[in-house]
């Protein structure tokens, strides 16, 4: 089993409190979401979201389907435009430039540059099927960061080693299992050395027995202090790895706190109702 070599020393002692504690007064948030609204046609998906994520913090977003959690995640790298409100990552406004009391949408080149600092992992992996695993990992560093091919390959090999797939560099995505594909997708996101990683239900498309290997990789990243926002249905994972758990329902953040607060002593009836169904 060479597949687990990339994720050594997995212990259950991580989780709340090991990374930067939430709302550390001495630190500026890495992600600031202020009053974000988003509507698809007549359906209002996000109804005023405020959220802070601090450097090194792992935030897990829970909530029933249709609660807006994936949409929120997609607004963070401007894959989805907001109708109202603003988002900043690392001090920079995402997707817009503020002049006076107006937000002007940025040109595509500038938006693409912002996205290289924000890694995104999709539910269905979205690996490029016509490219080998290695080319999937080198494409963006070469074309978006301007790395040389040799530098990009060295970086890709390092990352494949880290997710335990060094022997798959020449394979095509369809020759891999779902779990392996998602680990490649995580490595592909990491290849840009982003400041922030976003996970959109990274294990929802996987067979149950493959979920563990992907969570191992994410847990490993959490241990190393990567700032992450993870939308998931894996309550156990949230309890173990999250610094902060956010519960969303009907386009609003209902509750936010440590895993112990939100999962064990939920204050809101809707949180309780949701947890009673999924636990």
């Amino acid at each position: 089993m060479t597949e687990t070599t990339g994720t050594p020393a997995l212990t259950k002692t991580t989780g709340a409190g090991t990374a930067a504690p939430p709302e550390d007064p001495g630190q500026a948030p890495m992600v600031e979401v202020r009053g974000v609204h988003k509507r698809f046609g007549s359906h209002e998906v996000l109804r005023g979201i405020d959220l802070d994520v601090y450097p090194g913090e792992v935030t897990v977003v829970l909530g029933p389907s249709g609660s807006g959690k994936s949409t929120l995640l997609r607004t963070l790298n401007h894959l989805e435009k907001v109708d109202r409100g603003q988002i900043s990552v690392d001090g920079g406004l995402i997707g817009y430039r503020r002049v006076g009391d107006r937000l002007y949408e940025l040109r595509e080149r500038e938006i693409l540059r912002q996205r290289t600092r924000i890694g995104f992992v999709f539910q269905n992996f979205h690996l490029f099927p016509h490219l080998t695993v290695l080319d999937n990992l080198t494409e963006a560093p070469v074309s978006a960061l301007g790395l040389s091919r040799a530098e990009a390959v060295a970086r890709a090999d390092r990352l494949l080693e880290r997710v335990g797939l060094a022997d798959k560099r020449r394979a095509y995505p369809r020759q891999l299992s779902g779990g392996q594909q998602q680990r490649v997708a995580i490595a592909r996101a990491l290849a840009l050395e982003p400041r922030l990683l976003l996970f959109d239900e990274p294990t929802s498309a996987l067979d149950p027995e493959l979920v563990g290997e992907v969570l191992d990789v994410i847990r490993d990243l959490a241990e190393q202090g990567t700032t992450m926002i993870v939308v998931t249905h894996e309550i156990g994972f949230a309890r173990e790895v999250a610094d902060t758990v956010v519960f969303m329902d009907e386009g609003r953040i209902v509750e936010r706190g440590t895993p112990a607060e939100v999962l064990d002593r939920p204050r809101h009836e809707r949180t309780r109702a949701f947890l009673s169904k999924v636990l």
């Binding site: 924000i118 979205h126 494409e139 963006a140 074309s143």
Partner: peptide
């Protein structure tokens, strides 16, 4: 596929 390429900052 296009979304993934956009998320990776490809022009």
């Amino acid at each position: 596929q296009i979304e993934a390429a956009q998320a990776l900052g490809l022009g």
